[in-house]
C-alpha cells in the first residue's frame, strides 16, 4: 500500500507536512532564481532574447505552427496504433519455442537489430524517396504515408524489445499453471502472459512513445509540412528564431499529459491488485 500511495504522487517532496512543503518551495525559488539571473545577466542575452523570445513574432507565427502541429498529432497517433500491434507480433514471434520455428525467431531478431541500428532519419530518407520512385502499381507515393511507415518500422523494433522484456519477466510458473489447465500456448499468451507483461511495461512503452512524438518532426524531411517544417518557414520569413521556441513548447506541452497519464495508470494498477 505504501508503494502505491508513494508512486501516485507526481512529484515526491521528500518528506511529509507543511514544513517540507515550505522547504521545497524555498529551495525551488532560490535555484531557478539563480538560473534566471545567470542567463539574464549574460553578455549575449539581449541579442538572444531578441532572436528567440520575440513576443510579436511568437504571436504572429503561433497559429500556423499550432495548425501544422495537428499533423504531428495525426502522424504519431496513427503510428502508435500500428506500432502497438506490430511490436507485440514481433515480440511473440521471438518467443515461439521449438527448433522448427528457428527461422521465425531469427527473422524477428534480425528485424529488431536492423531497425534499432539504422538512424531513424536515414530510414525516413531511404523509404520516403526510394519507395515512391519504384513506381510500382498500388504502392502509395504519398510522402506522409512513407514517413509514418518509417516511424512504425523503427519504433516497432524498440517497442518489441520492451514487450519481450515484459513477457520474459512473467514467471514460468504462470505459463505452467495456464497450460496445466488445458489452455493452448496461444491462449496462455493471450489471457495470462501478455496481459501481465503489458501492465509491467507500460512506463517504458510510453517512454518510447514520447520519443516517437518528437521524431514525428523527421517526417518533415521528405515533404509534409508539420510543425517543425512550418516553423522553418516562419523563421525564413521573419529572420527570427522565436518560431522554433514556439514549436518546442508545443511538443513539451503534449509530452507532459502523456507522462502524467503514465503515472496515473501505474498507480491505478497497483491499487487494483492490492
Amino acid at each position: 500500500m505504501q508503494a502505491g500511495s508513494r508512486s501516485s504522487k507526481i512529484l515526491d517532496l521528500g518528506g511529509e507536512g507543511s514544513r517540507s512543503v515550505a522547504v521545497a518551495v524555498a529551495s525551488t525559488l532560490v535555484f531557478f532564481g539563480l538560473v534566471v539571473l545567470l542567463v539574464v545577466n549574460s553578455a549575449g542575452w539581449p541579442e538572444v532574447k531578441q532572436a528567440f523570445f520575440d513576443p510579436d513574432v511568437f504571436r504572429a507565427s503561433f497559429p500556423d505552427i499550432a495548425d501544422a502541429f495537428l499533423l504531428n498529432v495525426r502522424i504519431f497517433l496513427i503510428a502508435e496504433v500500428f506500432i502497438l500491434v506490430a511490436a507485440l507480433g514481433i515480440a511473440v514471434l521471438r518467443s515461439v519455442p521449438g527448433p522448427v520455428f528457428f527461422p521465425v525467431r531469427a527473422l524477428a531478431v534480425a528485424y529488431t537489430d536492423l531497425f534499432r541500428g539504422i538512424p531513424t532519419i536515414l530510414v525516413v530518407y531511404i523509404l520516403g524517396f526510394g519507395a515512391p520512385a519504384l513506381q510500382i502499381q498500388g504502392v502509395p507515393r504519398d510522402p506522409l504515408f512513407w514517413g509514418i511507415f518509417s516511424l512504425v518500422l523503427v519504433y516497432s523494433a524498440y517497442v518489441a524489445e520492451v514487450y519481450r522484456s515484459g513477457i520474459e519477466s512473467v514467471h514460468p510458473s504462470q505459463e505452467a499453471a495456464a497450460r496445466s489447465l488445458g489452455l493452448t500456448r496461444p491462449q496462455s499468451l493471450r489471457y495470462v502472459i501478455v496481459p501481465q507483461a503489458v501492465r509491467r511495461v507500460v512506463p517504458p512503452l510510453l517512454n518510447d512513445f514520447i520519443g516517437l512524438q518528437k521524431d514525428s518532426a523527421l517526417v518533415a524531411l521528405i515533404g509534409p509540412v508539420e510543425a517543425f517544417r512550418q516553423s522553418q518557414i516562419e523563421v525564413a520569413g521573419s529572420f527570427n528564431y522565436t518560431p522554433y521556441v514556439a514549436t518546442a513548447m508545443l511538443f513539451v506541452l503534449l509530452t507532459i499529459p502523456l507522462a502524467r497519464f503514465t503515472d496515473w495508470l501505474i498507480a491505478r494498477d497497483r491499487r487494483r491488485q492490492r
Binding site: A176, A177, S180, L181, G182, V192, P195, Q196, R199
Partner: peptide, 16 residues
C-alpha cells in the same frame, strides 16, 4: 490436461 487437475506449492494464481 483438461482431465488432470494440478495444484502447485506456490498457488500460481493469475495475479491480474
Amino acid at each position: 490436461r483438461r482431465r488432470i487437475g494440478i495444484v502447485f506449492q506456490a498457488y500460481n494464481l493469475f495475479p491480474h
